[in-house]
Nucleic acid binder design. Structure first.
Lengths: 204, 204
DNA sequence: GGTACTCTACTCAAAGTTGAAGAGAAGGGA
DNA sequence: TCCCTTCTCTTCAACTTTGAGTAGAGTACC
């Protein structure tokens, strides 16, 4: 899964209607050019592909002043919005070793209801755990331990990073459960709100 | 930088001469199919490209039994070996958010002299540190802290992962300095060796 | 001795990514 | 006014990656 689709879809969604350069600027303002593969080429390409697949609707705009490049505005479709949510869920849940996917997911996390966000992050924890197990298995089969030599350092690296990822995820879950940020369907900025009624049965 | 070139070059180097399928199996035996993008398509493609660029030499093998696909064996060239070392150094040093590059680097680290390995990892530490700084800068400019909202979680994620990476790197440096593993130019399996004479001026 | 499975070995079209470049408009100073 | 730079907006060729497909050869069962 590439982060670009999620990023582009999310950016267009925010604007209602946007052309490539706006999307570009949006992503830049989020710092996305630092941590993702979203460069002009990829973005314009993604816009075209998404339009071809019916997830965006392309409107050709004839430039009023005559001259200038033919610009195209894009609008998100119903299917596009669905795809956005589905990519977002996938990004939060999956242990994809590429951090840009996760970062994008975090960037859009407030577009989900608070409860779902927590549930997805908990699913993420489980998958991390499971993957950690599969790594240690793969590198310590029946030949006994310590036979690996320096290649065992690769396993070490992955385990270390899985643990760090899990720790970060737990921190985020905690902050969200404590009422940080404003999620989909919530109105008030949640500063110092007491536990909400509908929320007292978390972890159910 | 893609991990595939390094991986393929390293695999061919080990064998002296290898065809695509051997490389594939090699990588699989290192678990590389789990943590890298090295799939059959990428590997065959990389072999062809590397040959085209003069880093590998292609030998067409006419199949003895007549029939079967036309297989090609590859041999590493002098320039290929140089490129291998250069990619390896880059992989160890660069903070490339893709872990497959680092993993490949670790997998080949013993093909460098012990001293150089340590030096490169120390360089890596510095770069991580520097990058960590640039992330916190980007997300906390002049608008005062705490204005970020949930997007600040992205920064949190990156900082967390930079710290985890640094910690792992320090651990590896320590193990290497303590004599673990056998590096380029060393003969004996280094169990319990005392500090070597040529090595007492590390950190110079 | 057929048929089903797995292993060896490679190819290809479609999609994604990179890095550079193109071309008009807008500002600003000599 | 003319030139220079910077900003807006997009395209393109070259390269890489993906995911599925092709195809022969061993082997193993019943």
């Amino acid at each position: 899964m590439s982060a670009v689709r999620l990023l582009v879809l999310g950016a267009v969604r925010r604007h209602g209607r946007a052309h490539g350069y706006q999307v570009l600027n949006d992503l830049e303002s989020w710092g996305a050019h630092e941590w993702s593969t979203a460069k002009p080429g990829s973005i314009y390409h993604a816009l075209k592909q998404l339009a071809k697949q019916g997830l965006l609707l392309a409107h050709e705009i004839a430039p009023s002043t005559a001259g200038g490049p033919p610009r195209t505005e894009y609008e998100i479709t119903r299917r596009g919005a669905e795809e956005f949510l589905s990519l977002l869920r996938e990004a939060l849940v999956s242990h994809d070793q590429r951090m840009d996917v996760l970062s994008s997911g975090v960037g859009f996390i407030v577009h989900l209801p608070r409860r779902e966000a927590v549930a997805l992050l908990e699913e993420r924890l489980q998958r991390l755990q499971q993957w950690r197990g599969s790594v240690t298995d793969h590198y310590a089969p029946e030949d006994g331990p310590g036979q690996l030599g320096h290649v065992g350092e690769i396993m070490h690296l992955w385990v270390h990073s899985a643990d760090a990822g899990a720790q970060w995820t737990r921190g985020l879950i905690e902050r969200i459960e404590d009422g940080a940020y404003t999620f989909e369907g919530e109105e008030e900025p949640s500063v110092g709100v007491p536990a909400e009624d509908e929320d007292h049965s978390r972890h159910a």
